[in-house]
Amino acid sequence: MEKIITGKAFILGDNIDTDQIIPAEHLVYSMDDENEAKMYGKFALSSVPKEQSGLPEGNIPFVKEGEFTSEYQIIIGGSNFGCGSSREHAPYALMKAGAKVIVAESYARIFYRNSVDGGFVVPYESKIKLNDKIKTGDEVKIDIENNTITNITSDETYSLNPLGDVLPIVSAGGLFEYARKTGMIE
């Protein structure tokens, strides 16, 4: 697992539900066939209301029309990120689009589990609200060892809640890797 992750930030509001992250009509593509699987990247965050997409200005698509990956690697949300359905396609779609880390004030349980157990994206909790302090397009750096996020553009650093109980699963790269490491499965 990388210790430092840098990239451009994409800013969202509160209550980003899984229908906004990947609309249900797209849940039919195979994840094993790369030609189909890349469609999850194409439609990632495609149902976020336009004015709420890429704050503070809005009207910025996470993935540009006709593309399959995003220029943003770090998503900054507000509270209750990933609420709604159990679809694991949600954190998977964000990963396929190229996202590596999400920073939000809080998460819905199933989305959080799926992110960790599937090893798709690292779901960090911020100690304070950050989606009004970082702008879409800002260069940010996540320091996994020290649990911090730095806005390189504005040279400000904020602390993040340690990953705690799920750190061993995140470090292993997912639930199955963790279970093999600890001898639960072969």
Binding site: S85, I110, N114, D117, G118, D165, L175, F176, M184, I185
Partner: peptide
């Protein structure tokens, strides 16, 4: 309770799931 595919695949093979 509801879970995602990875947790379900783990149950399918082991019958177990971690919960807090």
């Amino acid at each position: 309770t509801g879970v995602g595919n990875t947790d379900a695949a783990f149950i399918l093979g082991t019958g177990k799931i971690w919960e807090k």
